[in-house]
Amino acid sequence: MNTSQPVAPEPARHARAFVAPLVSTLLTLPMAAVAFFFVGLSPMACDSCNGAASDRFDASYEVAFPVFGFGLLVVLVLLLASWALPWQRRNAAARVWLALAAPAVVVLASVVFHGLVDWP
């Protein structure tokens, strides 16, 4: 008499589970680097400013830069989550959505940054 319990079949491994995170990573990291480059150069927009305009720009930049940095941190978390999900078919949709959200958050972080800065 066999007293062992029947073993449930292992969920099917998705053969192309790496595609969405890979494409997203290859698009998102250069986008984030370019966005960070321009955000880093943006204080030069007010090099010729003086007085109140310079003070307003500096105060708004001091708020906008950490917000942008937090946005890039969210991008990193999304990319890591898209790679870290188990490579099974049941996680395919979540993996694709996370992979699509990462470059979208880079764009959103840039738009929010440019909206927060009081440009001269």
Rank of each mutant, 00 (worst) to 15 (best):
Q5P: 15
V7T: 08
A8S: 09
P9R: 07
P9Y: 06
E10I: 05
P11I: 05
P11H: 06
A12R: 09
A12F: 08
A12N: 05
R13E: 14
R13I: 12
R13K: 15
H14Q: 09
A15P: 03
A15K: 07
A15L: 05
R16H: 14
F18N: 09
V19S: 03
A20S: 04
A20R: 00
A20H: 01
A20Y: 02
P21V: 00
P21C: 00
L22F: 07
V23Q: 01
V23R: 00
S24C: 10
L26I: 01
T28E: 01
L29W: 11
L29N: 11
L29S: 06
L29H: 07
L29V: 11
L29E: 07
P30V: 02
M31I: 11
A32M: 08
A32Y: 06
V34G: 12
V34L: 15
F36V: 14
F38A: 06
F38S: 11
G40L: 08
G40K: 08
S42N: 00
S42T: 01
C46M: 03
D47V: 10
D47N: 13
S48W: 13
S48G: 14
C49T: 09
C49V: 10
G51M: 07
G51Y: 02
G51D: 06
A53L: 03
S54K: 10
S54P: 05
D55I: 00
D55A: 02
R56Q: 13
F57R: 00
D58E: 14
D58T: 14
A59G: 03
A59E: 00
S60E: 01
Y61C: 03
E62V: 10
V63H: 04
A64M: 06
P66C: 06
V67T: 15
V67W: 14
F68D: 02
F70D: 11
G71Q: 08
L72P: 07
L72T: 11
V74S: 14
V74D: 15
V74W: 13
